[in-house]
């Protein structure tokens, strides 16, 4: 629309206002995490300069929390689950779209059922299963659950994408003499690279941020994820404001950095994926 400057100003006014609403809480926490307790209370909105500046909060986080360990756990769980979701999801989607076999349609439906039925509803039986398998308080348990949880949406998106891709390239590879296995790994995998980003985003965020399964399946000190670690840490230090704010900032910053680096691909992936869905 070729709008007049007035309505354009109103539009930007609204957008800036909402941006402030979205960013202010995060900035407030980050700013105050670098202040002493006194500074936090005396002047919450001031920048952490001069006598207000203090890293006491971060010192107590480092002293009392095992945050590097938690980060390691979260990273391990998220990355392994992600690789499994992407690989197994792409394999299944390829198998379902490329080959005619009995029960193909039903199997496809079965595999995407999980989009509508949250896996959390099976928690009771899941815990019993892991107790039987001796996998409680292991990262393996989390990886298995998150993989199972992420597969339906991954298979759905990959299937939709593969359906839209011409099958001729696979036939061409067959004529070039590739086996069915190599066709998948050397032709199909490179082909679906654009949607891998979408699926990765859809799968990664809920895994990294999940509280439910770490709390239930692996609450032990050694296997705590960042999300659970923060939750427990803050539970213990409710009065130590500097420490709480520092812990929150520690949890935000890595995600923020990742987001800034990847935001373009990420948002393109989400919008592209949403268009397909």
């Amino acid at each position: 629309m070729r709008s007049n400057p007035l309505s354009s100003m109103a539009i930007h006014g609204v957008l800036i206002l909402y941006s402030a609403l979205a960013l202010f809480p995060l900035l407030l926490i980050a700013i105050n995490s670098f202040k002493s307790k006194k500074g936090i209370f005396r002047d919450p909105t001031a920048l952490p300069l001069g006598e207000l500046y203090s890293t006491k909060g971060y010192q107590s986080v480092l002293a009392n929390g095992d945050f590097p360990l938690y980060f390691g756990n979260s990273l391990t769980v998220t990355l392994i689950s992600l690789v499994l979701i992407l690989l197994l999801g792409a394999m299944a989607a390829h198998g379902l779209t490329e080959y005619r076999f009995k029960g193909n349609g039903l199997l496809g439906l079965y595999l995407i059922l999980g989009i509508m039925v949250p896996i959390r509803l099976g928690t009771v039986a899941l815990l019993e299963l892991f107790v039987k398998l001796g996998l409680t308080n292991t990262l393996t348990a989390l990886v298995l659950v998150y993989t199972a949880q992420g597969l339906p949406i991954a298979i759905f998106i990959f299937t939709e994408f593969l359906k839209s891709v011409s099958g001729e390239i696979k036939d061409s590879a067959r004529i070039d003499g590739l086996s069915e296995y190599r066709i998948f790994f050397e032709v199909v995998l490179p082909l679906i690279r654009p949607v891998i980003a979408t699926v990765a985003v859809f799968s990664m965020i809920p895994i990294w941020n999940d509280l439910w399964f770490p709390l239930i399946l692996s609450p032990g000190e050694e296997t705590r994820t960042v999300t659970l670690g923060i939750q427990q840490f803050i539970g213990q230090y409710t009065v130590n404001w500097s420490a709480v704010l520092a812990a929150l900032t520690v949890a935000i910053v890595p995600v923020l950095i990742m987001y800034v680096i990847f935001s373009k691909q990420l948002i393109r992936g989400i919008t592209a994926g949403a268009v397909k869905g």
Binding site: L111, G114, T123, A125, L126, L129, T147
Partner: peptide, 14 residues
């Protein structure tokens, strides 16, 4: 592989 993991850790528990 996908069917197996999904069945054991998502469908079976439900």
């Amino acid at each position: 592989p996908a069917t197996l993991i999904y069945t054991v850790f998502a469908i079976y528990p439900i």
